[in-house]
């Protein structure tokens, strides 16, 4: 019998050609509309945008458009504002993601326990996510404004500030304005995904651990965290990338000022493109940012795979 197994080849698929074609193309048919849109409205413009990085593209200048090789990148290497912006991006992204994550996780843990009025509390806590981002920018700019907002007065009252000034015009601390607005706006995203992940953990695991005599903290460390780890990795990755690219709050609240102290790469691209109309240079910066984020995402994906394998 074993001989027969080895000798007989697995025959060819004998279904008619059209049928095979139909069944092989089925998944593509389902995803085609989405794919066509993504390719025409995002991928093609992306390629064109990348080509701008190697061309002299200034709007309103009829003589621009020529190929200039790596000139933009050379200029970029010497651009002090860019390096400052890169540093600011790390600062902005790092603090925003870390704080959103911590508070999001705490909120998710709080909401994971059943209590009366949980549905309402959950809906209210998640509400900031629905607020248009530029409106949250305006909203927080107003709260930080000593004339119409209370925050400077509170900080002054607590002795954290020597006078009720606008945080957003302080060169040393201005970045905290957009970061706080961003944390407020972004906590729900983490809370939602982490809450869903928490609720997927089988309850009997906790019961078994409790019977084994694990303290709540030990249970959190040995059950909750390992279960959440893959979700955490993927959400942190997505959020990092989004936040690094997210210029709305900064443009609305500080516009990069004072003295470029809150300029991040994304807002710098915006400034180059729409204040100075230099699309070529803007594209070059964007390409550098894209490359950095791609490298970062690869690292996270690798990390996640190791985590999943260890499970």
């Amino acid at each position: 019998m074993t001989e027969a197994v080895n000798a007989a080849p697995y025959g060819r698929d004998r279904r008619p050609f059209l049928r095979r074609l139909a069944s092989a193309s089925e998944p593509y048919l389902y995803s085609a509309p989405a794919l066509i849109l993504i390719v025409t409205v995002m991928l093609v413009p992306l390629v064109i945008g990348i080509s701008y990085a190697f061309r002299d593209m200034t709007l309103l200048d009829p003589f621009s458009g020529g190929f200039i090789g790596l000139d933009h990148f050379r200029a970029l290497a010497k651009d002090k504002t860019f390096w400052q912006a890169l540093k600011n991006t790390v600062y902005w992204t790092g603090y925003s993601v870390a704080l959103q994550f911590c508070f999001g996780l705490i909120l998710a843990l709080l909401l994971d326990k059943p209590f009366r009025g949980r549905g309402l509390a959950q809906a209210l806590c998640f509400l900031p996510w629905a607020v248009p981002s530029f409106l949250s920018g305006l909203n927080w700019a107003m709260l930080f404004n000593p004339i119409v907002g209370p925050i400077p007065h509170w900080l002054y009252g607590l002795g954290l500030m020597s006078a009720p000034d606008n945080l957003l015009s302080s060169p040393d601390h201005a970045m905290w304005g957009p970061i706080i607005a961003n944390v407020w706006w972004g906590i729900p995203f983490f809370a939602i995904t982490l809450l869903a992940a928490l609720q997927s953990i089988p309850r009997d695991l906790y019961e078994a651990a409790a019977i084994d005599g694990a303290t709540p903290f030990q249970r959190f460390r040995s059950i909750t965290l390992p279960f959440l780890a893959p979700t955490i990795a993927i959400t942190v990755m997505l959020r990092t990338v989004w936040i690094a690219n997210f210029a709305d709050l900064i443009v609305v609240m500080t516009n990069g000022g004072p003295a470029d102290r809150t300029q991040i790469v994304a807002s710098y691209i915006f400034t180059q493109a729409f204040r100075r109309l230099d699309f070529g240079y803007a594209s070059a910066i964007a390409m550098v940012l894209l490359a950095l984020l791609l490298v970062y995402s690869m690292l996270i994906v690798l990390l996640r795979q190791t985590l999943l394998r260890e499970r």
Partner: peptide, 14 residues
């Protein structure tokens, strides 16, 4: 992958 299945004498592979 290979071979034949008939139900009621009729080939149903496809």
């Amino acid at each position: 992958s290979a071979g034949e299945i008939k139900i009621g004498g009729k080939r149903v592979n496809e």
